[in-house]
């Protein structure tokens, strides 16, 4: 059970990579990248997971020690947030580039977007 959930994250990662490699449509490639992003984010959250853990927020009147013994790991959640922000920036850039590519080439098909050799 424990390992299966990690496998799910990796399966998602593989789906994303498949999308990036096999699809020739710019938009689908961007979606593949996003799936990869979310797979990694999920892995990060899972790493901090603890069975029956509570949210890592210390509320008023709570004993800090007892709370720390039951809460999930907050650090991966902070990392996920950072990673989401990076993903947001990347998505905006990718979409902007896709639109520009469409303006220049008149297509979203990567097979036709090849003015460069190689």
């Amino acid at each position: 059970m424990g390992i299966a959930i990690y496998m799910l994250a990796f399966a998602l990662l593989v789906v994303g990579i498949y999308g990036v490699i096999a699809k020739r449509n710019v938009i689908k490639i961007i979606l593949g990248i996003l799936i990869i992003d979310y797979a990694v984010n999920m892995l990060l959250v899972l790493v901090g997971y603890r069975r029956d853990g509570v949210a890592p927020i210390l509320s008023e009147g709570q004993d800090a020690k007892a709370w720390a013994a039951t809460s999930v790991d907050p650090l991966p959640q902070a990392m996920v947030l950072t990673s989401i922000v990076i993903g947001l920036g990347l998505t905006a850039l990718m979409v902007a580039m896709a639109i520009r590519l469409y303006q220049k080439y008149g297509t979203f098909d990567m097979n036709e977007i090849r003015k460069l050799k190689g």
């Binding site: 947001l88 905006a92 979409v95 902007a96 639109i99 520009r100 469409y102 303006q103 080439y105 008149g106 297509t107």
Partner: peptide
């Protein structure tokens, strides 16, 4: 974020063919 949205919405999807 708003700036990015505005910038993206400024694009017109007109290609050479269409």
């Amino acid at each position: 974020l708003l700036g990015a949205f505005m910038a993206l919405s400024a694009f017109r999807l007109t290609s050479k063919e269409s």
